[in-house]
């Protein structure tokens, strides 16, 4: 059932076909739901003897590597240790167990780019990390990234949550995490739909569990 759909382009003249055809989809009995499982292909890295944080390592080369070896990044402006600490801090601010650290690292890469462009940003980030590490050392005798329990790290963050450093990280993560199209399928969000003919043939009204 390919439907020809017309759209008026708003500038006068003949309506142009906007969507030539919609994808032919058999109506299913049940709701069209999404598989939210991650589909990241894991690749191995040679183990190194770098500094180990809770969920990642910093290799002697300065490369920051995920504990599950699924990702690796190099800091452009920030110290590798600071980059890694920000990754951990980001996960603690918006913890999603189904997101591996690579998504948080990608968000932190945006902060690293700001640090590359602006000395003020770089100082704010490095100073913020240093203060967080100092607070962790005082409370637990280790740096922030080495504090073992999320609740203990969260307590350290709550102590600074009204500070400019915390607020700029948290604010940046709202887009850094949730506006990354790669995470959308993991939350069951399908993104753009006009290019697929909308949802009229793709389950806009297919809810199947409400009582009559």
């Amino acid at each position: 059932m390919a439907t020809k759909l017309k759209s008026y382009n708003g500038t006068g003249g003949t309506p142009e076909p906007l969507f030539l055809t919609t994808t032919e989809i058999e109506r299913e009995e049940s709701m069209r739901v999404l598989d939210k499982r991650p589909k990241v292909s894991r690749r191995g890295f040679l183990g190194g003897s770098g500094v180990t944080l809770v969920a990642m390592s910093i290799l002697p080369s300065g490369v920051i590597m995920g504990a599950d070896s699924a990702w690796a990044m190099t800091a452009k402006a920030l110290k590798p240790e600071s980059f890694a600490t920000l990754v951990q801090m980001s996960r603690d601010i918006y913890p999603h167990d189904r997101l591996n650290d690579s998504y948080y690292a990608k968000a932190v890469a945006a902060f690293d780019s700001q640090a590359e462009e602006s000395e003020d940003s770089k100082k704010m980030l490095e100073d913020g990390v240093a203060a967080l590490d100092a607070a962790a050392m005082k409370a637990h005798g280790v740096t922030y990234g080495q504090v073992g329990w999320e609740a203990e790290r969260v307590a350290l963050l709550q102590a600074i949550e009204s500070d400019g450093f915390f607020q700029s990280i948290r604010g940046g993560l709202v887009t850094g995490i949730y506006n990354n199209p790669d995470v959308w399928p993991l939350f069951g969000y399908e993104g753009a739909s006009a290019d697929q003919g909308g949802y009229i043939e793709r389950g806009f009204d297919d809810i199947d569990w409400l009582e009559a």
């Binding site: 006009a194 909308g198 009229i200």
Partner: peptide, 19 residues
């Protein structure tokens, strides 16, 4: 009015892509 029927696209807030 020379405009199509709703395609249930969503994104009504983002400017309707079907007019």
């Amino acid at each position: 009015d020379d405009r199509s029927a709703c395609l249930q696209i969503g994104f009504c807030f983002q400017g309707c892509k079907s007019a």
